[in-house]
Design a binder for these strands. Structure first.
Lengths: 114, 114
DNA sequence: TTGCTATTTCGCCATTCAGCTAATTAGCCG
DNA sequence: CGGCTAATTAGCTGAATGGCGAAATAGCAA
């Protein structure tokens, strides 16, 4: 699987997006991350593994805790893809729109030349 | 499932992103979309349904053809979420970084006042 | 060592998903 | 009508996913 697909897949879950939002406020342990959701630890642990596979989260060690930290790089890639795509398309759309406008104008002032 | 999750999930497949890219060039029938991939029609049809559920593609009818068209609105939502998140986080990161810089400076010039 | 806490790994189950083939529907044309 | 093409639906598979509880691991503390 390509990087972009893995990133989008990781973002395609509200729980995982909430985890990311929480991590944006600063490091947190797995337990701390689990607390606001009504989810068992193993479940959260699995979500974290998905996020790590996407490179969105990294984990360090402090005694028996494994604090998680946000990593923004893949998010940047995803944002870039989406933005670029959208911009390209809107440009194209604008050009198409202009052409239709033009055609309409020609039709109004002449009818069937061309 | 929420809108954003559905959109991200739809984007989390290279085939579907390729279909969107093709549609950015203009309308296409299901057969035309299927051709460049080595995929059977029903498979492409299923991908299209996922894209439609996400509101990324709309389908009209022309005789026995069902030309597909790109719809950009959900992409905008996804881009916005990602960009906003990233920007927020980078701001926060910059602030944290500045604070660390500050702490380092204080440590250098004094040691343990606080 | 024993015990306590934090976290992961291991199975298990139900659901979803990407792919296929075969069959069905929809619409044209002769 | 009958035949042709386009596309969808139905039904199947294997793989992945999200949830769980139970067991294993890692590290501190007494």
């Amino acid at each position: 699987m390509d990087h972009l697909s893995i990133t989008f897949a990781a973002l395609a879950d509200p729980t995982r997006r909430a985890i990311l939002a929480r991590l944006a406020l600063g490091e947190a342990t797995v337990g701390e991350l689990a607390e606001p959701f009504e989810l068992r630890l193993p479940t959260v642990s699995k979500h974290l593994k998905v996020l790590q596979r996407a490179g969105l989260v990294s984990q360090s060690r402090k005694a028996q805790w494994r604090p998680c930290q946000l990593e923004a790089a893949p998010l940047k890639d995803a944002a870039e893809w989406t933005e670029l795509f959208r911009r390209n398309w809107e440009e194209r759309f604008a050009r198409l729109d202009a052409r239709l406008e033009q055609t309409k104008k020609e039709a109004r002032r002449g009818g069937d030349e061309r």
